[in-house]
């Protein structure tokens, strides 16, 4: 009887863990930072930006402005492994209010398995990192986080 009780308890804990994993996001900021830092070399760390992403029934566009300086060399490292599903990443030199703008970087050709993306920026005054988050109507309340790290030399 005691044995059956413990087997049931283990089963219960297993299922509880399984359901918890289904809803939690994978945003381990320390691990994501460490991973980006490795890819940043030989550029020196400058800044990083975490963006929490809540998938909703409507597609969303989030934009991060990154001021940079002419004459400096910059590298941006993205890590998407904190997201439950893919998003589109584009970088522009003009903000989203400007109708005609061309992306200087896009992850549209990246494979799903590519979680880390590296971009060496051209000469510019500012960069605008855009996240195009697709709609999610599954009521699963999916959440996650994006990180990019900026380095210079």
């Amino acid at each position: 009887m005691k044995k059956s009780f413990y087997i049931s308890l283990v089963g219960l804990l297993f299922i509880f863990g399984f359901t918890t994993l289904q809803t939690a996001d994978n945003c381990d900021k320390k691990a994501l930072t460490a991973s980006c830092k490795k890819k940043l070399e030989p550029f020196k760390y400058d800044s990083q930006k975490f963006t929490k992403i809540n998938f909703t029934k409507k597609p969303q566009q989030l934009e991060v402005e990154v001021p940079i300086f002419i004459g400096e060399k910059y590298r941006l490292v993205f890590n998407t492994s904190g997201l439950p599903k893919g998003i589109k990443i584009n970088i522009f030199t003009k903000d989203k209010e400007v109708k005609k703008r061309e992306a200087i970087f896009s992850n549209k050709d990246a494979k799903d398995s590519e979680k880390e993306l590296v971009f060496d920026a051209p000469r510019s005054r500012k960069m605008y990192v855009d996240y195009d988050v697709p709609a999610d109507s599954t009521n699963a309340k999916l959440t996650g986080c994006m990180i990019f790290m900026v380095g210079y030399k």
């Binding site: 400058d46 800044s47 597609p59 969303q60 566009q61 991060v64 402005e65 990154v66 195009d132």
Partner: peptide, 22 residues
């Protein structure tokens, strides 16, 4: 269906400032 029809929700812009060392 929602993906096609729903308009894109544009969020407030956020900022990533450089470091004092740079």
């Amino acid at each position: 269906v929602d993906t096609v029809e729903a308009p894109v929700e544009s969020q407030e812009i956020s900022y990533s400032l450089p470091s004092p060392l740079q």
